[in-house]
Measured scan of single mutants.
Amino acid sequence: SSCPGKSSWPHLVGVGGSVAKAIIERQNPNVKAVILEEGTPVTKDFRCNRVRIWVNKRGLVVSPPRIG
């Protein structure tokens, strides 16, 4: 992607959502990480300053967080 800084975090799958949020925002200060339960409807727009963290009912990351 053409967004500045780190853009994906595949190693965070299985980690707690709040831990993942802290790591992502520390590694790329340009983004705001948002924790969402899988299945939550979201907009389809692409934004360089957003990372969606998809978690299951136990709050664990279920897919690699990435910019968008």
Rank of each mutant, 00 (worst) to 15 (best):
K21N: 04
R52P: 11
R66K: 12
K21Q: 09
V15S: 07
L60G: 05
V31M: 09
L12Y: 03
R26A: 11
S7D: 14
V55S: 02
T43I: 10
S2T: 14
N30G: 15
L12F: 05
V34I: 14
V31D: 00
K44G: 12
V42W: 05
A20T: 02
P29F: 01
T40C: 07
S8F: 13
A22W: 10
T43M: 10
I67H: 03
Q27H: 09
S8G: 08
I67F: 06
K44S: 12
E37S: 08
G16I: 10
V55D: 00
K57V: 03
P10V: 06
S1H: 05
V13I: 09
S18H: 15
C48V: 13
C3H: 15
I67L: 12
R58I: 13
V61E: 00
R52Y: 08
I67K: 15
V62F: 01
E38I: 14
N30M: 14
R66M: 11
L60D: 10
R50V: 15
I53L: 05
N49P: 05
P4L: 09
C3E: 06
V62G: 01
P65C: 03
K32W: 04
N56A: 03
I67S: 08
V42Y: 07
S63W: 07
R26E: 14
R58Q: 13
G16L: 12
T43P: 13
F46I: 09
I53T: 02
N49D: 15
P4I: 12
V31I: 14
S7C: 13
T43R: 09
N49Y: 04
A22D: 11
A22P: 00
P10L: 03
G5N: 15
V55W: 03
V31L: 14
S7W: 12
V19M: 14
V42M: 07
I24E: 03
R50E: 15
S1V: 14
Q27S: 11
S8R: 10
S63K: 13
T43A: 13
P10G: 06
V61N: 00
E37P: 09
V19K: 11
R58F: 14
S8L: 12
P64V: 11
R47W: 12
G14L: 01
R66L: 11
G5C: 05
N30W: 11
V51A: 06
R50D: 14
W54K: 02
C3W: 08
P4T: 12
W9H: 00
K57L: 05
N56C: 03
P41N: 09
V15H: 11
V61G: 03
R52W: 09
I35K: 03
V51T: 03
R47T: 14
V51H: 02
W9Q: 03
K21D: 00
P4G: 13
C48N: 13
L60E: 08
G14A: 02
V34W: 05
S1E: 15
K57Y: 06
R47G: 15
T40G: 04
P4F: 10
R26H: 06
P41Y: 06
P10W: 04
G14F: 00
A33K: 00
G5H: 08
G59Y: 01
E25W: 01
G39M: 01
E25F: 00
C48T: 14
E38K: 09
E37N: 10
G59S: 04
V15I: 13
V61K: 02
V62P: 00
I53K: 01
G16K: 10
P4V: 15
E25N: 00
P10F: 05
P65T: 03
V19S: 09
V19G: 03
K57P: 06
R47E: 15
W9E: 04
G59F: 01
V13P: 01
R66Y: 11
E37M: 11
A22R: 13
V34L: 07
R58S: 13
I24H: 01
V13G: 07
L12K: 02
S2P: 12
R52H: 10
V51G: 01
K21M: 04
A33F: 01
P29I: 05
V15A: 09
V42I: 05
V34N: 08
D45N: 10
G17K: 02
V13S: 02
Q27W: 06
D45V: 05
S7T: 14
A20M: 04
V19E: 15
C48S: 13
I24A: 03
V61D: 01
N49G: 08
R66H: 15
P41I: 11
L12S: 02
R66E: 13
V62T: 12
S63M: 08
P41A: 11
K6H: 15
L36R: 05
G68N: 08
N30H: 15
L36Q: 07
R66A: 12
P64E: 09
S7A: 14
V13R: 01
S2D: 15
S63G: 06
V42Q: 05
R50I: 15
R47V: 11
R26P: 01
T43E: 14
I67Q: 09
D45T: 07
K32E: 12
V42F: 05
W9K: 04
N30Y: 09
P4R: 11
P4S: 13
A20D: 00
R26I: 06
P29N: 06
L60N: 06
S18I: 08
S18Y: 14
S7L: 12
K21V: 04
R47H: 15
I67A: 12
V19R: 09
R47Y: 14
H11E: 14
P41R: 12
E25S: 03
P64C: 06
I53V: 09
S18R: 13
S2Y: 15
V61W: 02
S18M: 11
V15M: 15
G17S: 04
N49F: 02
N30K: 14
T43Q: 11
K21T: 04
G14E: 00
A33I: 01
F46Q: 10
S63Y: 11
N49R: 05
H11A: 12
N28T: 06
W54N: 04
I24S: 02
V51R: 02
G14V: 00
K6C: 15
G17A: 06
I35A: 05
A22T: 13
S8W: 10
W9G: 02
K6E: 14
G39T: 02
G14R: 01
G5V: 15
H11P: 05
R47L: 09
R58L: 12
S8C: 15
P29G: 06
K32G: 04
G14T: 02
K6Y: 14
R52G: 07
R66W: 05
K21A: 10
G17R: 01
I67E: 06
P64Q: 05
C3L: 15
F46M: 11
D45G: 08
G59T: 00
H11L: 09
R52L: 13
G68E: 10
T43K: 12
Q27L: 07
P4E: 09
T43L: 08
D45P: 05
A33Y: 04
L12T: 04
I53Y: 03
P65F: 03
I67W: 05
N30E: 13
V34Y: 07
V34K: 08
K44M: 08
R58E: 10
N49K: 04
P65I: 00
I24L: 04
S8P: 08
I23D: 02
C3K: 14
G59A: 02
K6N: 15
N56F: 00
P29T: 09
S8I: 15
P10K: 06
K57M: 03
H11Y: 10
R58H: 11
E25P: 02
C48Q: 13
